[in-house]
Every structure is written in C-alpha cells, then in structure tokens.
Design a protein around this nucleic acid. Sequence first.
DNA 1: TTGTAGGCGTTATCAG
DNA 2: CTGATAACGCCTACAA
Lengths: 333, 333
Amino acid sequence: MSRPTIAGVARAAGVSVASVSRVLNGLPATEEMAERVQRAVADLGYVPDSRARSLKVGRTFQLTLAVADVGNPVYVTMMRAVEEVVSAAGYRLVVTTTGPEIVDEVALVRGMARGYADGLLISPIRVDEDLVKSIRECEVPVVVAGNVPAKAGVDTVRANSPKGMLLAVNHLVAKGRRRIAFLNGPADTVPGTARAKGFADALKAHKLQPIAVAEATDFTFTAGRAAAPALLGVKVSAGLPDAVICANDLLAVGLMHELAAAGLEVPADVAVVGMDDSELAEQCFPTLTSVNLGSAERGRRAAELLLARIEDNDRTPRRIVVQPSLSIRRSTP
Amino acid sequence: MSRPTIAGVARAAGVSVASVSRVLNGLPATEEMAERVQRAVADLGYVPDSRARSLKVGRTFQLTLAVADVGNPVYVTMMRAVEEVVSAAGYRLVVTTTGPEIVDEVALVRGMARGYADGLLISPIRVDEDLVKSIRECEVPVVVAGNVPAKAGVDTVRANSPKGMLLAVNHLVAKGRRRIAFLNGPADTVPGTARAKGFADALKAHKLQPIAVAEATDFTFTAGRAAAPALLGVKVSAGLPDAVICANDLLAVGLMHELAAAGLEVPADVAVVGMDDSELAEQCFPTLTSVNLGSAERGRRAAELLLARIEDNDRTPRRIVVQPSLSIRRSTP
DNA sequence: TTGTAGGCGTTATCAG
DNA sequence: CTGATAACGCCTACAA
C-alpha cells in the first residue's frame, strides 16, 4: 500500500485525473465535482508529489540558503530574516552548510542545476575565479550575501565593513583609547581582507598606528582563543593594547576568555569590540560592544532580491550595500 | 537556451539516451562510448535533473533534519553530527526550522509525503496525539531525536535527563550546596516535563527540598533572563539559593546575567549548572558546568537509525537512550 | 554492448 | 465544465 496518486483519487471519486488536478489547483469546477474530489482526497490521505509537480511546472517552490558555518550566530540572525521573507512568499527554505572549503561552495552552486531549488542565496566566505564562474553560469537565480566581483553579474547585498570599522575606532578613540589592536580572521577570506583594510584606514583617519594585528585561522571561538596570545604577548617596548577590535563576535568572545585568563579586565584594562552584533554579543559577559553589520537586513533584502529575480530574470543585477551601526555595550567604557 | 537534457547529450554524442544514462550511472559500456558521452556532457554542461531522476527511481538522496530553533546551540552540535553521518552515506542534508508551534511540526511531517526527502529526522519540543499520528502515518521513515510514545512506532534516540539531573545534583551536593533551585523551560514541553521530574527525584534522593522552581516561557536566553527574578526575589524566609540548575545552557546564561546584575557572584554566591553542554557553555563567562546529554551522539545515532531504516523499513523500531555525563567548569565551585 | 519504448505522477492542451 | 492525452526528464526492461 504505497502512496495514493492522483489517478487513485480520480478513480475513487469517479472523475478524471484532469478534474482532480483542477480542483486541487483551484481552477473552475462544479460545486459537486469539488465536493467529490475533496472527499476522495481526504479519504485516501492523498498528498501531491512535489517532484512530479515540479518536473511538470518547472518550479520547486524551494529556496536554498547556503552558509559556511551553522555555529556562527551571525548566520542565525540572517537565516531568521531570510526565512521570514521567503515563507511569506510561499517558498520553503532549506539550509545547507558548505564548510570553509571553497570547492564545496562551487560544488553546491553547480549542483543547483539539478533542480533542487528555484534559487540560491549564498554567503561565501572565500571567493575565487571558479566560484564566480559557477555563479555566473548557475542555472537558477543566485543572490550573494557578501562581496563578489561585479562581473559575476549577480545581485549582491553586502555590508560596509570599512565604515563599521570606523564606527568602532571612533567610539574607542572618543573613550580615550589609542593603543588599538586588531584580531582578524583569515586574511584570505572576503570579510578578512575587507576588515583588515577597514581597520588600517580607520586608524589612519585618526593618525594612529596599530599596536598589534593578529590573524586567527578561522572565524571561530576556538581560533580566537588561540590567536589571542599574539596580541597579548607583544614585546614590552610596544606594550599591551588598551582596546582590541575583533573581526567578528566569536573571535571577540574567544579573546575575552584569554584576557580574563591573563588577569586583564574588560573594559577597564582592555576594551573589546566585536563585529556582527549577533545574539552572542548580549549573551557573553561582559556584554559585547559590537558593530552591527546589518545581518538581518542583509538577509531580508537578499531574500527580496532573490524573489524578484525569480519573477524576472532579466532585471539588471543590483548591488546593495547595507549601512552599519554600533551597538554599545559593556565591553567598552 | 535552457538546460540540456539527456536527449540533447545523446544527440550531441550521436548515441541513444539509454547509453548516456548507462555511462552516467557507471554501467558497462565501451571505452569509446563512455568517451563520447563524457565529452558531450562536458561540452553541454549537462547536469541530470534530480527531480526527474527521483521521480523515476523513487529516491531523492536527500534527508531532512527539522529542529525547533536554529538559535539554540545544542542543535548546532546535533546538526554537525548528523551531517557527518549522512553525507558519508551519500545523502544531502537539508535543515528546516519548525518553530515552537506543534502545528508546524505536524504540517512538516505531513508534508514529507510530498517527496521532498527520503527520510526525516525530527527533534520535537512538544508532542501531542496529532504529531504522533502524523509520524506514524508518515510516508517516509522518521526518526525522532527525543521522547515520543512507543506507540508512534518509530526509532527514537533520547537523552536520559533524569540521570543527567542526578549528576548535576550529586555534584552540587558534593560541593556543599544544599539550597538548590531549578530554572525550567515551559513545563508543557517534552524536555520540560522530563527535567522537572528529574529534578524533583534527584533532590528527593538527597532528601532535599527545592528552594525555588521557576519556569521560563521558552528555552531561550531572553526567557531565562525574564524568569530569573522568580528565583532571586524569593521571600526572605526562604532565602536565596546557593545553586541553580537550568534546563538548558541558554537559560543558564540568561540567569547568569541577572545574577551579575543583582550583584551575586558565580560560583561564590550561587553555583550554576546548565544542560546540553553546548558550545555556549565554554563561550560564556564564567564557563558553565553543564550536563552533557550527548547531543552529538544522539545526532549520530539517530542518523544511523534513519539510514538503516531507509535500507530496511521492516526492522522493528529501536529506542535508544544515550547516557549523560557532566562537564565541570567554572560556574560551580 | 547498444537502442527502443514505456512509465514514474503531475499539469496543460485540446476536444467534447 | 469535463475528460482523454501528451509532455516534463529520466531510468530500465526488453529486444536487437
């Protein structure tokens, strides 16, 4: 006793499959016809097969969101925003994890051609020629939440991390901090390079020299802890920083643990600023001042762009930049 | 210029569609045949349509993992474990969020009949007759990570939270704490009821009375903060607790913030124990002693059960219980 | 080894 | 308004 098909329903209702299909899709039909079909559907517990349906109509009403690391709370924020927009439009959202490897992302984009979903929302952490190429050639509409060259020819929604960096530096300087260090993630990533440059520029704007710059091997809590000594063990001539800006919240929290272990107090001895303003920023202790790079808004707008492009694939690609703000909490004076 | 189909490849290669299909599926073929097909596939950039394929073969090679709240770090742990097992077996994992509403879970389970995936791994937070019914009647194999009545007739993998609770209480008592309170999540949830009973029993085993019990409206950080006053504002006759066990890590972290705000020190004044032993437990400050309910192992074993059931749907349902352990950190003396 | 043809479950077209 | 039937893209007997 396998799943009932539309043919079974038709037989049970004593009508044709075409009529069943029509009733189910709300096309005009007699009162009585609708009645009979509905009953048969209910009796048999019939549920249309989405594969067969999408094979025919060419749409799956599924959208894929691909993120690098489900453990990064910034994606939680983004995911929630995307989910809201997408489900309001009648689509299902499926989330897949790519991991940090770029080849996995390329494989994912290429695999979209297989008809799993009607569109892809991807937030790549590393970008290379292959990825750009795969995105440009992708069979289904793609929207990138992040920075990808214009020649990829896709809609993008990205953060303005240089400006975010400036907000952070302004705030620290206003609070009297001058010995500012930077804890970055891997420099070969898109956010890594953007934030490194943003940091350098922001300090320059204040005519300050960086006290120290360290690079974690990953945008994770563990990597943040591991990289902290590079900031704290600086040679005596340079001295300790009185503030550290971190490329994301996870790194910041990792750093704060090492600061505590080293007997340094936040913010009294060292102020700490994170980026992303994720849920973690208010969960950690002390609560973390963090640059809000607009992850929720980026998610929302990216989802909207994707839906719009599914409607009309000929529109010229838009490149939206979401402006940052600073959420000030207890980790800065 | 839409997607090339297998027919296009056959035409380009000058062979039949059957031959293309065979080459692609690794069935015997001439060296030359394979050669020509491969070239045509590469030239056209052909990618098989998974919908058509699964419509024919009856399998999608996709598995669905449904969780209530992507913001709960315990699911991150579980997700990672599931992903590992599942992808090793050649399946794609898609994650969907149900939210706390039970009707959404039922809708999800029912919707599985539409052929989105070959199996469902669900971790329901609330369970009622409807859900059990939908699970029992589900067209595709279902494995429940959590507690569901045996009559649902499905494989389950669940935690032993009473025993976990006992580990927590034993630890606190060994450290000299006697005035133990409990911060639970909603009592109408599966984990909520199990943990409430576990707490009561564990205290009884030590012949202790609970100092206070509070119930958060949700298993979230925010709800934990909001419920904290109910534990700290107890009437003077009862006094303050010297330890609080929380039903999960998010609640514990929320509570710790309120303790700090009230000028109470952890663990000196109040010891705090969480449950789940999620990533958050070592990210928060002080690091959180937490009952490890085996989320990773539960995820892994649930995934294995699901794969096994897909292989053979006639096997009798197994009900696995994963044993807890205690991860001792700084939030307890 | 290779090709032909039928069918998976659905929707859309075209007669009635 | 309803019913028969041809696709959608693929796999797999079966035949050559």
